[in-house]
């Protein structure tokens, strides 16, 4: 039976790696891997993910094969050699402490820049130190995303603000800052295709920022449990050219200001 069990344990790295390879390389199956990234700053996250995947993959395969090999070779039913009566090896302990420690420390320090870019370095206005003002304020509440665009005057809280719900439009190829707020409980603003996620804490002033490089329609997902309707907080992110965005914003504003009504088929 020992052979059977050894092989069972060998299946772990084999099938495990196989599944990852099939999904990542899209062999016979699509869209079961990282979704498309359209944020210029998101690329580094994907690269880091893959780097860690290769590194951990190597360790996974190596330890899996070692486990299999030792079980196969030292199966008491088949192994006639006496047990190796050792209590350890100082050299090995040193080696396999220092090498992982160095690797882990390297990974940690290597990615600090990416973290700072994503969470600490808000874009500034071109040519100055002034922080870029938000294009839109997204207020999360149970269970929707309420939007308020600063409008043409780029100031929040004036008469030309455009209000909306769940339908977020953003111009492409520009640095964008979004102010995020919560009206009631914790929510989390998750844009899978932009690799953006930020928990929204009621009472705090928070921002996310990105620069998208491709037009398209993508999901907005709430990523922090906010009640029974957590799953209902679907939003839609539409990234379009600046011109199309301006046209859309103007349309929304005009719809918002409709001031007369003729019933259909009125006499």
């Amino acid at each position: 039976m020992g052979r059977f069990w050894s092989l069972l344990f060998l299946l772990v790295p084999v099938i495990g790696v196989g599944i990852f390879v099939v999904c990542a390389a899209e062999i016979g199956i699509e869209d079961h891997w990282l979704p498309e990234n359209v944020n210029e700053h998101g690329r580094v996250i994907d690269d880091l993910f893959m780097f860690i995947l290769y590194l951990t993959g190597i360790i996974f395969i190596a330890t899996g094969i070692a486990l299999f090999w030792f079980l196969w070779k030292y199966d008491a039913a088949k192994n006639v050699e006496p047990v190796k009566y050792v209590h350890g090896s100082h050299t090995l302990e040193v080696v396999w402490s220092i090498v992982p420690a160095a690797t882990l420390l390297f990974i940690a320090i290597y990615q600090m820049n990416a973290w700072a870019d994503a969470k600490m370095r808000r874009p500034t206005l071109p040519g100055s130190d002034e922080l870029l003002p938000p294009l839109v304020e997204v207020t999360a509440r149970q269970f929707e995303w309420r939007l308020r665009y600063a409008g043409v005057d780029q100031v929040m809280g004036t008469d030309d603000d455009v209000f909306g719900v769940n339908d977020l439009h953003i111009p492409v190829d520009e640095d964008i800052v979004i102010a995020i707020k919560s009206k009631d409980v914790l929510h989390s603003f998750f844009l899978p295709n932009l690799r953006i996620k930020q928990d929204i804490v009621p009472g705090m002033k928070q921002h996310v920022w990105f620069k998208s490089n491709k037009k398209g329609v993508y999901d907005i997902v709430c990523a922090e449990l906010c009640g029974w309707g957590h799953y209902k907080m679907k939003g839609r992110l539409t990234i379009s050219s600046r011109d199309d965005f301006n046209i859309w914003l103007q349309e929304q504003y005009e719809n918002q200001e409709v001031s007369e009504f003729e019933p259909e088929g009125s006499e």
């Binding site: 069990w5 030792f70 030292y74 008491a76 047990v83 190796k84 050792v86």
Partner: peptide, 8 residues
């Protein structure tokens, strides 16, 4: 496990 007499 290495070098043992493994009983499954």
């Amino acid at each position: 496990i290495w070098g043992g007499q493994i009983q499954f």
